[in-house]
Computed example of a mutant assay.
Amino acid sequence: MNPQDPLSQLRDIHLPATGGFWPPAPGWWVLALLILAVLTLTVVALLRRRRRSRWRRQAILALIDLEQKAEPTPVWFARLNTLLKQAARECHPESRPQALSGGAWVDFLIATAPEGQTPERHQLEAMAHAAWMPTVQADPAEAIRFARHWLGGQKC
């Protein structure tokens, strides 16, 4: 260092110290709030969807139980019709399906059947009337197949 040279007495350029990672810039706070809001809305939507489809899960479990105990008796068909009416009440409350019976119940099942596969009327009539007949003419396997298809196709 030369004492006569004033430039030699100057220090080199020093950059300011970095600010560190905390506290984050305002943009990061906004991003964090947006992510939190999206996550909250997603969880709420999933919980609502799960709550709305609870009846379907319960109906399918009851249908599996009925399938394991399938027998061509009026009591069994009455339980199947009750299960379908409970599911229909959840999905179509404005139609009051729990009050339907006979031909009106069969018409309702045909009208609300999933698109693409309309069930045969005589099979549904046999299933619906089997609960009141002393001898059952309906096949439990066909009734289970229809019930599974009908439950799976309900849009609620």
Rank of each mutant, 00 (worst) to 15 (best):
T42I: 03
V44P: 01
V44D: 05
L46G: 09
R48N: 02
R48Q: 13
R50T: 11
R51D: 11
R51A: 15
R52S: 13
R52A: 13
R52L: 15
R52H: 13
S53M: 08
R54E: 10
W55N: 09
W55P: 13
R56T: 13
R57Q: 03
R57G: 10
Q58N: 14
L61Y: 02
L61H: 13
A62H: 06
L63Q: 06
L63I: 10
I64N: 14
D65Q: 14
D65F: 03
D65T: 15
L66D: 02
E67I: 01
Q68V: 07
Q68K: 10
A70M: 09
P72E: 03
T73E: 13
V75H: 03
W76M: 03
W76C: 03
L80N: 08
L80W: 02
N81C: 12
T82L: 08
T82P: 01
T82E: 10
L83I: 04
L83N: 07
L84K: 06
L84Q: 04
L84N: 12
A87V: 09
A87W: 05
A88K: 01
A88W: 04
C91F: 14
C91H: 10
C91A: 15
P93R: 02
E94G: 10
R96W: 07
R96V: 07
R96G: 11
P97G: 11
Q98E: 14
Q98T: 13
Q98A: 15
L100W: 00
L100V: 02
S101W: 01
G102D: 10
G103K: 01
G103C: 00
A104K: 11
A104L: 08
D107L: 10
D107T: 11
F108G: 12
I110E: 14
I110K: 09
A111V: 04
A111R: 11
T112M: 03
A113E: 04
A113T: 12
A113V: 12
P114S: 11
E115R: 12
E115Y: 02
G116D: 12
G116V: 11
Q117V: 14
T118P: 15
T118L: 14
P119W: 07
E120D: 11
R121F: 06
R121D: 05
H122R: 07
H122C: 01
Q123A: 14
Q123P: 00
E125I: 09
A126G: 00
A126L: 05
A126F: 00
A130R: 03
A130L: 03
W132L: 02
W132R: 04
T135S: 04
T135V: 11
Q137Y: 04
Q137G: 02
D139N: 15
E142K: 12
A143C: 05
I144Q: 02
I144A: 12
A147W: 07
H149E: 07
W150G: 06
